[in-house]
């Protein structure tokens, strides 16, 4: 986008009401594009105790939850390549996901009830992710214990990889998977986020 300072001074008066007009047009675009069947991926950004979260959904369901440290622009660019370049910020399409996450962080929700789109994880990674909701709220399991649930019970490292590349963190609770020695292990949202989530789930319920 070109900045106003690059406009010749003669043309500057034309820019006075542009920002408001563009904001209004952008706000109306997702509905028009959806009506025309042109939005393949809708996204919005929500605030949370673990920082800003990017939520992205397809017609199938929630397809991506990303922490800000993953770089939201990079995540959107990856979605454009792997899912579809027809991506639009369309907050209303993700109202349910935003509400359930809000309830989760408020301690009022222990499991998610959202349609999910698993297309960003294939094969064994997908199998691992599908087992994660079996680890209940407030509980943890070791990487080895999760591997034991799968068709490859000795693939402990592959479980670690699947968790590290979980496209739907929080909703698929990879933060409940910890090392066998009881230490937390890594987390794609950062160690602080993992500690916060485990503390949240360990807290007495309101």
């Amino acid at each position: 986008m070109i900045a106003n300072r690059e406009l010749p001074s003669e043309l500057l008066p034309l820019a006075v009401d542009e920002d408001g007009a563009v904001a209004r047009l952008r706000a109306a675009l997702p509905a028009a594009a959806a009506a025309a069947g042109l939005v393949d991926v809708a996204y919005r950004v929500v605030d949370s105790p673990v920082g800003q979260l990017l939520l992205a959904g397809t017609e199938v369901g929630l397809v991506r939850v990303a922490f800000s440290r993953e770089g939201h622009d990079a995540v959107l660019a990856a979605l454009a390549t792997t899912v579809s370049p027809r991506i639009l910020r369309a907050p209303s399409r993700l109202d349910a996901a935003a509400r359930e996450l809000d309830e989760y962080f408020g301690g009022r929700r222990h499991s998610f009830d959202l349609p999910l789109d698993f297309r960003l994880a294939n094969g064994f990674r997908r199998e691992v992710l599908a087992h994660l909701p079996e680890i209940g709220y407030g509980h943890t399991a070791s990487y080895a214990a999760v591997a034991a649930l799968t068709s490859s019970p000795r693939a402990v490292r592959a479980v670690g990889t699947a968790c590290a590349r979980n496209p739907l963190p929080l909703v698929l609770p990879c933060h409940r998977v910890i090392r066998s020695d009881g230490s937390q292990g890594a987390y794609l949202g950062g160690p602080d986020a993992k500690a916060l989530l485990l503390a949240l789930e360990a807290a007495p319920q309101p």
Partner: peptide
Amino acid sequence: DDVWQETFLAALRAYP
């Protein structure tokens, strides 16, 4: 405004 929206819808349609 109308032409702006038509432009972006056409761009989305052509995008892939």
